[in-house]
């Protein structure tokens, strides 16, 4: 089974495309009624790379990653994830791709009625991965140790603080050892110190698993610490692209207002 194999093989050796492009988006258009959110948007993510998509609230950042994971259907465009065109896949094939792509939700989306252990086991069970109870236990413990919260294994999400919930949500994202991780505003709603801890954890995880990631954020600390490349999403398009250092030097007023 593809996912089972994916659990054993290091991420570096798992990239599927020749030119190490793990994700590409072309001509993406998405609108809600008359409100055009994404207009001819394009993006390319390489293996091991961290891209931060920067933009104002309501600029379509979350819509972009929801289109990438197949939660929203764009009107036009092409989204290739690990060589597969997401928009052409049936449900079963889409689930296979989703097993290799982690998604950290802005609101954490932990299942309230389940314990931390059950929350972490859920993606393992649901992606048809036939792992033994012992192996599942090991994977859960490993993911919790990665985020430094091994002691919360039997707790309910309601008993955890905001920062802890974010870490547990990150552990749930990591349990399938995804090749690509999509972060939807990972530091929103957290105090600066906890937010900094989450960003450091994201960088650490990226180094450990050699995953690639798209981080949606408007937190400058996150942009500075976690990004290899920054994409400015303005008016539904990729307005500017470059490293943090390159963008900070730009004189365009629309870009400048983000960094001032």
């Amino acid at each position: 089974m593809a996912v089972q194999e994916a659990l054993k093989i290091p991420a570096q050796e798992r990239t599927t495309e020749k030119e190490d492009v793990v994700l590409s988006v072309r001509n993406l258009c998405k609108s809600f009624g008359k409100n055009i959110v994404l207009n001819d948007f394009a993006l390319t993510l390489h293996a091991g790379e961290n891209i931060v998509v920067l933009g104002k609230s309501g600029s379509g950042k979350s819509v972009l990653i929801k289109c990438i994971i197949g939660l929203l259907k764009p009107e036009k465009g092409e989204i290739k994830v690990l060589g597969k065109d997401i928009l052409e896949l049936d449900r079963e094939e889409l689930d296979k791709v989703r097993a290799k792509v982690g998604f950290l939700f802005q609101s954490n989306a932990l299942y309230d009625s389940m314990t931390v252990r059950e929350n972490l086991e859920f993606p393992l069970r649901r992606h048809w991965i036939k792992v033994s109870h012992q192996k599942m236990d090991e994977l859960v413990k490993e993911a919790l140790e990665d985020v430094g919260l091994a002691h919360t294994i039997n707790m309910m999400p309601a008993e955890l603080s905001g920062g802890m919930r974010k870490r547990i949500a990150l552990a749930r994202t990591l349990i399938l050892k995804p090749e690509i991780i999509l972060y939807d505003e990972p530091t929103t709603g957290l105090d600066p110190i906890t937010g900094k801890g989450i960003i450091e954890l994201m960088v650490e995880i990226q180094k450990k698993y050699h995953s690639s990631s798209i981080i949606i954020s408007h937190d400058m600390n996150c942009v500075k610490t976690a990004s290899d490349r920054v994409i400015m999403l303005i008016d539904g398009r990729c307005y500017a692209e470059g490293t943090y250092e390159e963008l900070i030097k730009m004189t365009d007023p629309k870009i400048k207002e983000f960094f001032e």
């Binding site: 989703r98 097993a99 939700f105 954490n108 989306a109 299942y111 309230d112």
Partner: peptide
């Protein structure tokens, strides 16, 4: 109430990306 709160806290979306209909 249960499904409503799951919907607004993105738990339904989380299920969708976890290989669940």
């Amino acid at each position: 109430a249960e499904l409503g709160s799951m919907k607004v806290t993105e738990q339904i979306d989380a299920m969708e990306v976890s290989g669940t209909n």
